[in-house]
Simulated assay, not measured.
Amino acid sequence: MLAVVLLAVLATLAFVLSGPGETGQAAPQVPASQAETPSAEPGESGAPADGGGAVEGMPKADPVSIDVPKIEAKSSLVPLGLNADNTVEVPPVTQPMQAGWYENGPTPGEVGPSVILGHVDGNKQKGIFFRLKELAPGDKVSIARKDGTTAEFAVTKVERVAKDKFPTDAVYGDTTEPELRLITCGGVFDKASRNYLDNIIVFARLIAR
């Protein structure tokens, strides 16, 4: 688990979801305080939006698709790892409607934070997570899994954060329940660097299996 978390820390610090024609950036050195096993900050995940109790984690099973009804976002899911330069792989910018899941972390439904990435736009088209910022606590996210089951999540909060202040521990740190993070770009598009300056992060927790 420690190895997975360390990879996740590197991935998070490197993470840049591309806009039109963009590429990822090299990962900076991991601060010593983040090289230890991180844990989610108290209250980061939030209480369940529906007020329900904890749901038992599901067995490991690769996700195959995502459905977010409120924003009409449906996509198959491709596995994403790390590039040779320690940047996170992202779905091809030429296919902005394709979402992917970070395969070095828990699969959706397992105990821990699973992470799904998608473009806000690309190739001069809207991306799968173009409307991600519209989500609010209580909105539902469904993840179909390879074992035939479906993991149902409810959003607990939505954040817009500067990329240089990405909340690594809150996104990738250990959790005691099955949780989900959806991540895309947002904020101002910097033409000089050809990057969005912020990330939109949706936090959710498992409510049904």
Rank of each mutant, 00 (worst) to 15 (best):
E44I: 03
S45G: 12
Q34P: 02
D50P: 03
G46C: 03
V68I: 15
V55H: 10
E56P: 01
G46E: 05
S39F: 10
D50W: 06
E36N: 09
E56V: 12
A35S: 15
P38E: 04
G52Y: 01
E41P: 09
P69D: 03
S65F: 03
G53C: 10
G46Q: 06
D67K: 12
E41H: 14
K60P: 00
G53D: 11
M58S: 10
V68L: 12
K60D: 05
V55G: 10
P69M: 04
G46Y: 06
K70F: 01
E44N: 09
E44Y: 02
S65G: 08
P42F: 14
G51Q: 09
G52F: 05
D67M: 06
A47N: 03
D67E: 15
M58R: 13
I66E: 02
V68A: 04
E44D: 11
K70R: 14
S65Q: 15
V64Y: 05
M58N: 07
D62I: 00
K60C: 00
V55P: 11
P59D: 01
G46H: 05
G53S: 15
G57T: 11
I71D: 08
G43C: 12
A54L: 12
A40D: 02
I66R: 04
I66F: 03
P38A: 08
T37S: 12
K70I: 04
A35Q: 14
P69C: 03
A40T: 13
I66P: 00
M58P: 14
V64L: 10
E41S: 15
P63K: 11
G53V: 11
Q34C: 14
T37N: 12
A47I: 05
K70D: 02
A47V: 08
K70Q: 09
P63I: 10
G46V: 05
S65N: 09
P48I: 02
P42D: 14
A40V: 12
T37M: 13
D50S: 14
G43T: 05
V68P: 10
E41C: 08
P42E: 06
K60V: 03
A47P: 01
G57P: 15
K60N: 03
P38L: 08
A49I: 10
G51W: 02
P59H: 00
P38H: 13
G53Q: 07
V55K: 13
G46K: 10
G57K: 05
P38K: 11
A47Q: 09
G51L: 10
D62Q: 13
A61Q: 01
G51F: 02
S39L: 08
S45C: 05
A54Y: 00
G43M: 06
E56D: 13
A40L: 03
G53E: 11
D67S: 15
G57F: 04
P48M: 03
G52V: 12
I66G: 02
I71Y: 07
D62W: 00
P69S: 03
Q34L: 15
